[in-house]
Amino acid sequence: MTTTETVQPPAAVKTSGINQVLQDTMIIAWRNIRGGMRVPDTQIYMFIQPIMFVVLFAYVFGGAIPVDGVNYREYLMAGIFAQTMAFAVAPASVGLADDMHKGLIDRFRSLPMARSGVIAGRVVSDLCSQFIVLVIMMVCGLIVGWRVNNGVLPFLGGVGLMLLFAFAMLWVGAFIGLSVGNPQVAASAGLIWLFPVVFLSNAFVPPSTMPTIVQNMAEWNPISAIVAAARDLFGNESIIVSDAWPMQHPVPAALIWCALIIVIFAPLAVRKYKAAASK
């Protein structure tokens, strides 16, 4: 070990307020993306899984699930997009649980950085990767026959809605990850409940084919509102045969659901962060 004495100590500079929050958030986001890209799990999640879902559903189920008078592949894509955005829960919960497990959250908390930087950085980096995933899926969708029939602005609205939904689900993921504090548990705790929630919706089949009780659940499922709104915005056939309010007004319903999820889970996640760190 060399013992060269170093130059004059740089004193910690005091910046404060919104600038520091933004800067620290971006540094943590940089760190998540930079480090995450070195992990095979992340690469599979980002590049393989979305392609797999699109191809699998389009070619394997596409022929077997006839939906009357509708191009099923077109019908399907919004469902797969929404499902994958909902899966944002997984990287957020695993990432934060991992940081906690390895003691990195302690390290961050001992630094003179913005308190909110760790969660906000996680949300920013995961939102970036969800955006990349969405683009990859849309390109794959176009290749297998999905089309946007509604003009540029509604299309951008649809993309925005998908990202807003991902943003909302990231807070759910942050809450779960900080609650369990163990990456293995977080991986399953983050996803296990999502499968039934996604399948109990209009994502893959019209709810009108389901038993009445299940049908009612599906119509009021947030996923259904997101998917129906996306189909509207992309100009894909959505065959709504329901009087339920969210199905009649999918775009406002989708926005309300996203807002609700954020309003509930963002404060919960922040509280968990504070509590988790003070253990």
Partner: peptide
């Protein structure tokens, strides 16, 4: 580098 940045160094 990251820790330095979080100590608010340039």
């Amino acid at each position: 580098w990251m820790f330095g940045r979080l100590y608010q160094l340039s």
